[in-house]
Design a protein around this nucleic acid. Structure first.
Lengths: 216, 216
DNA sequence: CATATACGGAACTCTGGAGTTCCGGATAGA
DNA sequence: TCTATCCGGAACTCCAGAGTTCCGTATATG
């Protein structure tokens, strides 16, 4: 949280008289910032754009955040809260079933929006550690965490070997989806995701493709 | 090529008298542009920086390229020429041997430099098709093409099944390396690459890990 | 109703980078 | 040597965006 005042943090600071600061406006500004960020990139984004999109004045934005950098930092961190609603963890009884169940419109849309934000920040990640940490925590980790959980459950079921490199395998789909979408600029559709699951992830954990080493 | 004059293209334009335009300076400027681009990103890069790094004046830069955009476009396209020298294709007789042989300092350094350039351009890829095509042709394709070639040779040898999804498997290492380096900001060292080869790529083509389906 | 505060919006300053112009000096060809 | 051209560098103009200030209005509290 880099906001100037929360109005809630220090109750003594709350005004006794007059109009109160509207908390809903905070969220409108953050949402607008995320949208503009995804559409135009960090440098293309202007405070005027964000204010206009949020139906606010520029002064209102600066009344709540000290600078563009801090607004962006909060906007990125804000992405983390929303994914609790959209990212529901499936439990179908098989690893493939769980992975396929993750391919749903709300989950896909969430991923696509976050990917665009990541592209907007890409050039700054190496020079702005704060931002890089926020982006990692809000965009990368939630998805990887779910994948790790699905893999651990598969190990507990005895479905896959316990020596599988969970850390590595959990990053296959985030990596390949990001590359496919950001760099190759191809749509992340159901077909591509199924190809990754059946052609890369499942073989990597010992499911799905016969090996020459064990089937002479 | 978006350069204004080449001096070679139209011989009639070559001055009959006086000092000639120095072709070596073109390359110095392009090299400097790539460096600055990788260090500061597209928006952070200024023509003054490039000129200073190249030991040139800003006027000299604008004498050769009409705008910053065209300079960057040429600088990216220029990356393609250099990789012919550094990217030598190994032939060890086995797929794993070939993949491991690709892990060499010159190849790694080339990859790291190109990754930073890609990060610098990431936010513009969706809005600048010219740039996206140039980046794809200069950075993504050369590496993917080599991987596809290694896989095809493995198929011809009978080392891996002919129905392997070459297109997909060839993108595993570029994807995971890009993610590892750009987003997770971890060093792309020999150990990580070996983990990807043995833990993901080889299993995906049916080598390396026993499957439960075929070994009851 | 009275008052203190937040609001949207407009007008401002200031800074930095794109792109241009000009100059004295260097240099290759006639 | 003479001359046309290119060079590096400095000094510009122009513009967009960050951040600030001010004002008329709206509104919650007392």
């Amino acid at each position: 949280m880099t906001q100037l005042d929360d109005g809630q943090k220090v109750l003594d600071d709350a005004p006794k008289l007059g109009r109160r600061r509207d908390p809903a406006k905070d969220q409108q500004i953050l949402d607008a910032a995320v949208e503009i960020l995804a559409e135009t990139g960090f440098d293309g984004m202007t405070i005027d754009m964000v204010a206009a999109r949020a139906g606010a004045g520029k002064a209102t934005v600066y009344r709540r955040w000290a600078s563009k950098n801090e607004l962006v930092l909060d906007a990125v961190a804000c992405l983390k809260k929303n994914d609790l609603d959209t990212l529901q963890i499936p439990d179908t009884g098989t690893l493939r079933g769980d992975l396929v169940a993750m391919i749903r419109p709300p989950t896909l849309d969430d991923a696509e929006r976050k990917l665009k934000v990541m592209a907007a920040l890409a050039s700054m990640l190496s020079t702005a550690p704060d931002l890089a940490d926020a982006a990692n925590e809000a965009i990368v980790e939630p998805r990887a965490r779910i994948n790790r959980m699905l893999l651990h459950r598969a190990i507990e079921r005895g479905e896959i070997a316990p020596d599988v490199d969970v850390q590595l395998v959990a990053l296959i789909s985030p990596s390949m989806v990001a590359y496919h979408s950001l760099i190759q600029r191809k749509p992340v559709d159901r077909e591509f995701l199924l190809t990754v699951i059946d052609g890369v992830i499942l073989p990597a954990v010992g499911l799905g493709r016969a090996t020459r080493l064990t089937t002479p």
